[in-house]
Structures are given as structure tokens and as C-alpha cells.
């Protein structure tokens, strides 16, 4: 017990600010003008179709974006891990997206995927010799819910992939090289080594990636804000309600729901990955 005393100041600091924000948020969510306490903001949100839209959009964002980041990170990490030469160089190249603020990347994508002209449209219209002509007319990248959300999700995944990659890479690097050698001497080819040794051993790192990235996906703001202005996610909806709509109470309700969903997702991931891990340890002949 005495070991935790040095941690107390940090704990108080964290708890204090967390509590402060949460209390303010809860208070705000039951305030409507001069009325306090009231469920009016909650009722308004539950009647708001835009909220349900945003909820579904965000859910799709989380369900597709989180595994996508895991897979992108895993592939990049495996590429760096298995590369014979220039390991440091390849790793640096992969880390570049993370060197820019999300706002910059989002703005870049905004320019590339402009609905009138823009690089993406020009490319698909066959204006560059290295790419075949695919479409005749400009695509309205931001005028279509599917395209707008896809572009913002890809932007998000591309920008944040380095974090996933670095986490998985450190997991890969902590695997004893002799384990791989042992697998080789026992007849395991590349595929067997990957699926039976490497992936199970980086599983904890992959779990970390899923946990961190799912939180990021739930609370994503900047990419959809810039690239999918007409199709809100929960993150952008909060801003919209608070700033543009002048409904701080409703914004607070959405924020609380977002917190709740995030926590729920984390619990779910811990539960599922725990089960998979037990499966991995016990799989095999009759055990």
C-alpha cells in the first residue's frame, strides 16, 4: 500500500480536473436557460433526427475506422520489421503523416478532393498520363454522405496510422529473434511463423491499438469538421449545437452520451480480446 503514496499528487491532479469537467458537463446537461434542473435538453436531443444520424455515422466511423487503423498499422509495422535494409528510413517515411497537425492534413485533403476541379477529380478524369480516365464529370466529394465520410475516415486513418504502427512495431521488436529461429528449425514457413508465432505475440500490442484508436474514432472532430460539414458525427454535432445552435445544454447531453459510448466500447474490447487471448493460449490438440 505504501507504494502508492508517491502517486497521490498525480492522482489528485487528474481526478480533480476530470471531476471538474464532468461536474460542469452534467450540470450543463440539465440546464435550459434559467431552468435547473431539467430534462429538456435530453428530451430535445432524443427528438432530434440529426442526433440519430450523427450517432449512426459515428458508429460506422468506429466500426470501420478502428480495425482499418489496426490493419494499416500492422501492415506498416510488418513491412518495417521484415525489411532487410533501410529500416530506419522506411520507418521515418511511415511516420511523416503524424508530423503534421490534423488540421493541415484535413485542409490538404479538402483541397485535393475539391468538388469543382481539384486533384482527385482531375486524376479520375484522366488528366494525368499515368492514370486512366474513370469519370466524365466532377464528383462532389463533400455533397455525398458516403464520399464525404469515406474521405474524412481515410484521412483520419492515414494521419494516425503511425501511432498504431509504432505500438505494434515495439511489440514486434520485443519478440525474441530466437523464437522465430526455433520456429524455422521446426519447419515453419513464413506464413506459419506469422500466424502462429508473430501475431499471437503482438496480440497485446494490437489490443492496445484497438483501445486507443476506438476512443480516437468516437471523439473524432477535425477531419469530418473540415471534410464532411453537412454530415455530422457526434463530435461535430456537439460543436454545432454549442456554437452555431446556441444550445449548450443539448451539446452537453451529446457529450455525456459520447463519454458513455466510449467507455462501453472499451469494456467490450477488453472483454473480446481477453477471450481471444485465452483461445490462443489453449488452442491446439485436445486441450
Amino acid at each position: 500500500m505504501s507504494d502508492i503514496w508517491p502517486l497521490i499528487p498525480a492522482a489528485i491532479y487528474l481526478l480533480f480536473f476530470f471531476m471538474l469537467v464532468m461536474i460542469a458537463l452534467v450540470t450543463l446537461s440539465v440546464t435550459e436557460g434559467d431552468l435547473f434542473p431539467t430534462f429538456e435538453p435530453l428530451q430535445a436531443i432524443l427528438k432530434n433526427t440529426e442526433f440519430y444520424d450523427a450517432l449512426i455515422n459515428t458508429l460506422i466511423f468506429v466500426i470501420i475506422g478502428t480495425p482499418l487503423e489496426l490493419i494499416a498499422g500492422l501492415f506498416a509495422a510488418l513491412l518495417v520489421y521484415n525489411s532487410f535494409w533501410g529500416k530506419t528510413f522506411i520507418r521515418s517515411v511511415f511516420v511523416i503523416p503524424f508530423a503534421f497537425p490534423g488540421l493541415v492534413i484535413a485542409t490538404l485533403l479538402f483541397i485535393l478532393f475539391d468538388s469543382q476541379g481539384g486533384f482527385a477529380n482531375h486524376l479520375l478524369q484522366g488528366q494525368y498520363s499515368f492514370f486512366p480516365k474513370v469519370i466524365d464529370h466532377d464528383v462532389a466529394w463533400r455533397g455525398n454522405k458516403f464520399l464525404a465520410l469515406s474521405v474524412s475516415m481515410l484521412g483520419k486513418v492515414w494521419r494516425d496510422m503511425p501511432i498504431s504502427m509504432l505500438i505494434i512495431l515495439s511489440g514486434l521488436n520485443s519478440i525474441e529473434p530466437e523464437l522465430i529461429d526455433a520456429a524455422k528449425t521446426m519447419g515453419a514457413g513464413f506464413r506459419a511463423r506469422l500466424t502462429k508465432i508473430i501475431l499471437p505475440l503482438v496480440f497485446p500490442a494490437m489490443t492496445t491499438v484497438l483501445l486507443l484508436r476506438s476512443v480516437e474514432m468516437w471523439k473524432e472532430f477535425i477531419f469530418p469538421y473540415i471534410l464532411a460539414g453537412n454530415y455530422p458525427l457526434l463530435g461535430t454535432l456537439i460543436e454545432k449545437l454549442y456554437g452555431f445552435g446556441s444550445e449548450p445544454g443539448e451539446a452537453a447531453v451529446v457529450a455525456l452520451i459520447l463519454v458513455g459510448l466510449t467507455v462501453l466500447t472499451l469494456i467490450l474490447i477488453v472483454e473480446i480480446t481477453g477471450r481471444i487471448k485465452r483461445e490462443l493460449v489453449n488452442s491446439g490438440v485436445n486441450s
Binding site: A182, K184, A188
Partner: peptide, 28 residues
């Protein structure tokens, strides 16, 4: 290595930490 008719015991044993004894033995 995987095609050579050899078996090897490493100085560090190199047992697969995520597999039980039986699965380590039956891996190959």
C-alpha cells in the same frame, strides 16, 4: 532452415511463451 533435416535446442530454449508445453511440443 525449415527444409533442413535438423532439430535444434537453443541456449535460451526459445520455448514459445504463448503455448503450453503440449503445444510447444506438437508445434512442428
Amino acid at each position: 532452415a525449415q527444409k533442413r533435416p535438423i532439430g535444434m535446442v537453443f541456449q535460451s530454449y526459445a520455448l514459445f511463451p504463448h503455448m503450453n508445453v503440449k503445444n510447444n511440443i506438437t508445434f512442428g
